[in-house]
Write a protein that binds this DNA or RNA. Structure first.
Length: 483
RNA sequence: GGCGGGGUAGCCAAGUGGUAAGGCAGGGCUCUGCAAAAGCCUCAUCCGUCGGUUCGAUUCCGACCCUCGCCUCCA
């Protein structure tokens, strides 16, 4: 089955077909973080969504180039370095390192390229020059360069491709009124911002004088530099549709005269405990806040991946608790499969299913994989995909209980899971090794049980519990579990 | 004011013109020296309200109510 995606550009679900003539290579750009603070759980929903798209395209056999920019020069960053009295690199470096660490915690595959805005100033300037040469951009009295929406529309281009805009009825709110730039038109946006005293040491030379790039232009410059003037996929949060993505289209197509991006994918917002996240409501969480509450990256990833990407999702602490139980259900099942398969060095990775297949042409898949893949083909219906996974878990458990699952069946099941998890990225939980002291207690308890000295064995169990370890007696002997 | 999402069991969340996936919680059972854990089974006569179309609507159409978001900081 072919992958279908909702394209914001056409406002409809379309079959995905890469620009690449061989149908194999795919270019994908996702707007990355502005490194002025720790990323919050809402940001992470978008990045995990991008990770899902990337992983699933790879699952389908595409050779993807995934680019995510790092915005390391911007108003809030400048404000931050002024307040903390640090250098630009020092300031952004700290948050960038945290971002990369969080990305790893959530088991997101690292994008192939993560360009920094400050390292692409020449490309940004060159792009602005093109726009100036085509008279779509102009230098204002304040030394800044703006994009003229009027001129752009005059060329027969449409501004407002991703959502309907009615300029006559745009409400002039406080934010717009607060703008005191020398723009010809209110809707015009900055490509190059002239240096002002508050910028401190943050500026670069340019044909229009010292200054720094606007936010929108950097994404156009870097994405086209890495992926070409036209590429396949551009993702981001839904709030970026306007103005950011709209402006990217205008700048890029205004400069090249070619279609910029084929498919625009937008991830929906996240509510936390039913409300928009805000610090005053006390429902504002960074990933780090949640880790501090004792949740793990995979639990958070799981929860972020339970809902369809285009639906507003309500993230709750209770949901996170449920995620833990749900994951344990999968882990238990996989653990049993591994026991049945035996530890004879079985390597799921060596199975032929792992082989790259020509895009869109997969061999016959095990039922669960087929359902999983069919679900994701439908505009990444991950809820249905999880449904397939959990029904498979139940069926597998049933077969295990009636001992009708051979080592070969079990190995096959694990191989299927391996493929599924290449998309979900849930992995296996970090197993805590029990210290020798705990093992000794466990053995002492077993001895007492054998001698039917249950008073003693129960006492040892309590002692273990006090030390943070729970015992589960299974037919194959006791198992230790960290509490 | 303009534009766009939503309203499905206690909670989260898929889906369909023919009578409701999945997860969590709850209930029952199995296993167990007892527990714990786990597993299995079960759990919405019903999909915001009111009309309409239809043999049949949660699904299509209309109206209304509620809710969330975007409208130049924003994932």
């Amino acid at each position: 089955m072919a992958l279908k995606l909702f394209n914001t550009l056409s406002r409809s679900i379309q079959e995905f077909a890469p620009l690449d003539l061989t149908g194999k290579k795919v270019g994908m750009y996702c707007c990355g973080p502005t490194v002025y603070d720790f990323a919050h759980i809402g940001n992470w929903r978008t990045f995990v969504f991008a990770d899902l798209v990337r992983r699933y395209l790879e699952f389908k056999g595409y050779a993807i180039t995934h680019v995510m920019n790092i915005t390391d020069v911007e108003d809030k960053i400048i404000k931050g370095i002024r307040e903390t009295k640090t250098a630009l690199r020092e300031f952004t470096g700290k948050y960038e390192a945290a971002f990369l660490e969080d990305l790893k915690t959530l088991n997101c595959v690292l994008p192939h390229q993560m360009p920094h805005a400050t390292e692409y100033i020449p490309e940004i300037i060159a792009l602005i020059e093109k726009l100036v040469a085509r008279s779509i951009a102009y230098k204002a009295a304040d030394g800044s360069v703006y994009f003229s929406i009027e001129k752009y529309r005059g060329c027969g281009c449409t501004y407002g491709r991703l959502l309907k805009l009615n300029f006559d009825e745009l409400r002039v709110g406080d934010r717009v009124a607060a703008d005191e730039y020398d723009k010809e038109s209110l809707a015009d946006f900055a490509l190059w911002k002239a240096r002002v005293p508050e910028d401190g040491e943050v500026f670069w030379p340019s044909p229009w004088g010292e200054g720094r790039p606007g936010w929108h232009i950097e994404c156009s410059a870097m994405s086209m530099k890495m992926l070409g003037e036209s590429f396949d996929l551009h993702l981001g949060g839904e709030d970026l549709k306007f103005p950011h993505h709209e402006d990217e289209i205008a700048q890029s197509e205004g400069a090249t005269g070619k279609p910029f991006v084929n498919y625009w994918l937008h991830g929906a917002f996240l509510l936390v405990e039913g409300k928009k996240m805000s610090k005053s409501l006390g429902n504002f969480f960074t990933l780090r806040d949640l880790l501090a509450k004792g949740f793990t990256g995979r639990e958070i990833r799981y929860l972020l991946l339970t809902a369809h990407y285009r639906e507003t999702f309500n993230f709750t602490l209770e949901g996170l608790q449920g995620a833990r139980t749900a994951l344990a259900r999968i882990d238990e099942c996989l653990g049993k499969l591994r026991e049945i398969t035996g530890s004879a060095g079985f390597q799921p990775a060596s199975l032929p299913t792992k082989e790259r297949q020509p895009a869109g042409k997969m061999p016959a898949l095990p039922a669960v994989l087929q359902r999983f893949s069919d679900s994701l083909d439908e505009d990444l219906n991950i809820s249905a995909a999880w449904g397939a996974v959990f029904e498979w878990v139940r069926e597998t458990n049933r077969r295990i209980a009636e001992h009708s699952l051979s080592a070969t069946d079990s190995a096959g099941a694990l191989a299927a899971w391996d493929r599924i998890d290449s998309v979900l990225g849930i992995g296996t939980p970090a197993e805590a090794e029990a210290p020798a002291e705990i093992i000794a207690l466990l053995e002492a308890r077993q001895a007492a049980r054998k001698a039917k000295d249950f008073k003693k064995s129960d006492a040892i169990r309590d002692e273990l519990k006090a030390k943070g370890w729970a015992i589960e007696d299974t037919p194959k002997g006791p198992r230790l579990k960290r509490i």
